[in-house]
């Protein structure tokens, strides 16, 4: 007998109570959407990728290994789905940089916090997908390094190094952005 609430919900879904799946969706949708958004940098695409991930998870629920943690298994599906969306996105040649600059136009010159977020978002887009995802997952505070490794399919030590390097790269990018900004003043 397990006490994990996710497993109890999964058992009920597998026993034929399809509507119970909505409870799992409600519980994990914010993390799923955030992970997809960090990778795709586009709300519409992130929404679609997160929804697709839930549908995939539903269809593979029978194969879910009960010894594993549901969230880790599910966020790996989200990660892989978002990465495959990203590949399609790249094939369609959408320039993320322009999207970010356009989005940030309305929030410019508001609060300092918003400015920080704007520069951070801009700097994050300069990182590669893997670094950005690793960093985002790390700062979601929900996952341990081991879990992040499982989600992204990388060993824990590699993940640790990646996060350190990503932060260093982010610092360099921020300096670059801020110096450019200072020159335009």
């Amino acid at each position: 007998m397990t006490n994990d609430p996710d497993l109890i919900l999964i058992d009920r879904v597998l026993a034929g109570e399809q509507h119970v799946f909505a409870e799992l969706v409600d519980k994990h949708k914010r993390y799923a959407f955030t992970i997809a958004l960090k990778i795709l940098q586009d709300r519409g695409e992130a929404e679609e990728a997160a929804q697709d991930s839930f549908v995939k998870a539903y269809h593979h629920l029978v194969k879910f290994n009960r010894e594993a943690k549901f969230s880790t298994w599910f966020y790996r599906i989200v990660f892989n789905t978002a990465i495959s969306y990203k590949r399609k996105q790249k094939a369609n040649f959408q320039d993320i940089e322009h999207t970010v600059i356009h989005d940030s136009a309305d929030v410019e010159s508001t609060l300092e916090r918003d400015d920080k977020q704007k520069y951070l978002s801009l700097a994050l887009t300069k990182l590669n997908d893997q670094d950005r995802t690793a960093l985002s997952l790390f700062y979601l505070d929900e996952f341990s390094l081991e879990e992040i490794g499982e989600i992204t399919g990388l060993p824990t030590n590699t993940m640790k190094v990646r996060i350190h390097r990503a932060r260093q790269k982010l610092a360099e990018e921020l300096k670059l952005i801020l110096s450019k900004e200072a020159l335009t003043l």
């Binding site: 949708k29 914010r30 993390y31 799923a32 959407f33 955030t34 958004l37 709300r43 992130a46 929404e47 997160a50 916090r113 920080k116 977020q117 951070l120 960093l135 985002s136 700062y139 979601l140 505070d141 932060r167 982010l170």
Partner: peptide, 11 residues
Amino acid sequence: MLAGPALSDPP
């Protein structure tokens, strides 16, 4: 900055 508001809300 990274530890700021991290989760995004879906529609």
